[in-house]
């Protein structure tokens, strides 16, 4: 199976082609500023390197749908939708939290992925390690996703559990534990999902039967829009009127 993977949720974006589980071609780029002008030429280039074209499509497309940079995710997802629509190939959205969990070292049994959500808060998900019955491989299973949470509350939730913290807010959480951090391991705090991980996760999800509706797939946002938060009103979902 040939997979085209797109990652634009973090500061370093990437596109990659993964054929039968192995990386064939990969390009990374900065996502800050003019991402729109950088992403599609990179997709064009990895496709050519991997011998793909408009009439030799990949078998599926997978894309990071966040949480992460709002604009980055929208650019990646909109391009992925256009590709899926044109090729009529399946699209699978991958959670950046799930991809971050993949960065935990072997031997970790419980992972807390945690990214900076500003305003003194973090966005977090908690995973444990299970055997995937479909592939017989070990995989991270989402146990609990508190979403937006204060570092102190997250530390309370973790309690005395032995965990690996992954993400750019991992150190913030460790600091909350202070001297009691003996059960807490921190993976490089700058880590952000790697496009290769997005590709592998996406294809695994697809093999397990996951298939997103390419037309209606939406990003995972950390918070509602600012005016929605200010007024406490939430727009009805998909209120665009045709």
């Amino acid at each position: 199976m040939i997979v085209l993977a797109i990652e634009t949720a973090g500061p370093v974006g990437g596109v990659a082609i993964i054929a039968s589980g192995r990386l064939t071609s990969k390009i990374e780029f900065q996502t800050q500023g003019q991402l729109g002008a950088r992403l599609t030429p990179a997709i064009d280039k990895v496709m050519k390197e991997a011998g793909l074209s408009h009439d030799v499509p990949p078998d599926m497309i997978t894309v990071d749908i966040g949480p992460g940079s709002y604009t980055g995710i929208r650019v990646g997802l909109a391009a992925a939708k256009g590709l899926a629509f044109g090729w009529q190939r399946p699209l699978v959205g991958v959670s950046s939290m799930n991809a971050l969990a993949e960065e935990a070292p072997e031997g970790s049994e419980k992972v807390v992925t945690v990214i900076d959500a500003r305003k003194g808060e973090v966005y977090a998900s908690i995973f444990d390690r299970v055997k995937d019955p479909a592939t017989n491989l070990m995989a991270w299973r989402l146990v609990f996703s508190p979403g937006i949470i204060s570092p102190v509350k997250l530390a309370e939730k973790i309690g005395d559990d032995q965990v690996t913290l992954v993400g750019n807010a991992a150190n913030t959480i460790r600091q909350v534990f202070g001297k009691n951090a003996k059960n807490v391991e921190v993976v490089d705090t700058q880590v952000w999902p790697d496009v290769e991980k997005i590709g592998q996760l996406g294809s695994r999800l697809y093999q397990r039967g996951r298939l997103d509706d390419a037309l209606s797939l939406t990003p995972v946002y950390m918070r509602p829009t600012a005016p929605e938060m200010a007024t406490g009103r939430k727009r009805k979902r998909s209120t665009s009127k045709i």
């Binding site: 729109g36 997709i43 909109a78 391009a79 590709l83």
Partner: peptide
Amino acid sequence: LIGSLLVGVSFAEGLSLSTG
């Protein structure tokens, strides 16, 4: 609005790459 424009442009370019 740049965030709005990017959605249309990115979709159109994805479509252009996958259709030629």
